[in-house]
Simulated scan of single mutants.
Amino acid sequence: MNLPQKKNAQSTSRESVLPDDSIPTRRRISLAIAFPELPREFWSQVEKGIDAAILQYRDLGLTVRSVRSKDYDLTDQKQKMLELVDSGEYDAIAISPNDPQEMTDVIDYAVSRNLTVSTFNSDSPLSSRLFYIGCDYRVAGRLAADTLCRFVGRKGRVGLIMSYTNLQMQQKVTGFREVIGSYPDVELRAPLKLGPEEDTPFETFAEYFEGLDGLYVASAKLHLIASHLEAAGLAGRLALIGHDMNEDIHEGLKRDAITATICQDPFSQGYLIVKSLFEYLSSRKQPGPDEKRIKLELVTKENARYYV
């Protein structure tokens, strides 16, 4: 692998610095947590979980630095990851890879440099990472399909909106298709694939919406799709399901523009990746199977207030 020259990382740091004499008999443990900038609301909730873990473990010698890569830019994420590895400043790195397959060589390179590497939110199972903290996205897709089919009365036509195809998206779509296929009276329209842009014009969706009874948004565009449905006068007439929770999605639920959303507990993802790496480095304790998996929770307007 041709490695780029080391440059100064442009990153957002979240560090807890201890006085030199605060824990004289304890080993200092330094972690770097790398993840993309988008979607901003999701990752800000992850950072709250990271901060909670820092607060819990900083007096035991933990320091943590969070590094965000630009948008969904794989090149930028690779560069930042290599800078972290080559700096020699960290005992472990946690990464949410933009593209799990493309990041395999970089993760393996980090491990070859005697760094502990784990993944969270998005896995890279072909790499030599130690463990993964996150959701089972195949189950997430299955949950979305079963819920959507029930909302449309187990018959009719449903659509699927997805973004660029990575491992996480593949798993969601696989699970979704598996369950849709078990409902003989539900027809699945060919998926609409969108780019990573934050704002996509209504014209992109206008024809796709026609004749649909339900729609699953597997990407991070649920609130955008909801606003377009409202503009088209389809809000409440077409069942809409997606992922995550933020103020825009909460408002969409309250207005019935969004039927339900599947929350992936971003706070716990941030908290558990720091906790798990700290415990591994300090005592070689790996998280158990139940600790690695993040719960999936179905949210409607009736219980949405508990998730914002």
Rank of each mutant, 00 (worst) to 15 (best):
M1K: 09
P4Y: 08
K6C: 02
A9K: 08
T12P: 01
E15L: 14
S16I: 13
V17K: 12
L18E: 13
R40A: 14
F42T: 01
W43V: 03
V46A: 02
K48P: 02
I50W: 00
A52F: 01
Q56V: 00
Q56A: 10
D59W: 03
G61H: 01
L62Q: 06
L62C: 05
T63D: 05
R65C: 00
V67N: 01
R68Q: 10
S69C: 01
S69Q: 00
D71F: 01
Y72C: 00
T75M: 04
K80F: 03
M81I: 09
L82D: 03
L82E: 04
E83S: 11
L84F: 12
G88C: 08
Y90S: 02
A92E: 03
I93C: 04
I95E: 03
S96L: 03
S96H: 05
S96N: 09
N98Y: 06
D99E: 14
Q101W: 02
T104L: 07
T104W: 07
V106A: 11
I107T: 08
D108M: 06
A110T: 03
R113W: 04
N114W: 02
N114L: 01
L115N: 09
V117R: 08
V117E: 07
S118W: 08
S118G: 13
N121G: 01
N121K: 04
P125V: 11
S127E: 12
S127M: 09
S128E: 15
R129D: 08
Y132F: 15
Y132L: 05
Y132G: 03
R138M: 07
R138F: 10
G141T: 08
L143I: 15
C149W: 01
C149M: 09
R154D: 15
V158L: 13
S163H: 12
L167R: 13
Q171Y: 09
Q171I: 02
F176A: 09
R177F: 05
R177N: 14
E178L: 10
E178S: 13
V179D: 04
S182H: 12
S182L: 14
Y183G: 12
P184M: 04
V186R: 02
V186K: 06
L188Y: 09
K193M: 13
L194Q: 05
F202G: 07
E203L: 10
Y208C: 10
Y208T: 10
F209Y: 15
E210Q: 15
G211I: 11
L212D: 02
L212T: 05
D213P: 03
D213Y: 00
L215C: 07
Y216N: 00
Y216V: 02
V217C: 09
V217D: 04
L229T: 04
E230K: 15
E230G: 11
A239Y: 05
A239G: 04
L240V: 10
L240D: 13
L240R: 11
G242S: 07
D244Y: 08
I249V: 14
I249N: 06
H250Q: 13
H250G: 13
L253K: 10
L253F: 08
R255V: 07
R255C: 08
D256E: 13
A257L: 03
T259W: 05
C263M: 06
D265S: 09
P266Q: 09
P266F: 06
S268E: 12
Q269I: 03
F278T: 07
Y280V: 07
S282L: 06
S283F: 06
K285M: 08
K292N: 02
V299W: 00
T300M: 00
K301F: 06
E302D: 13
N303L: 06
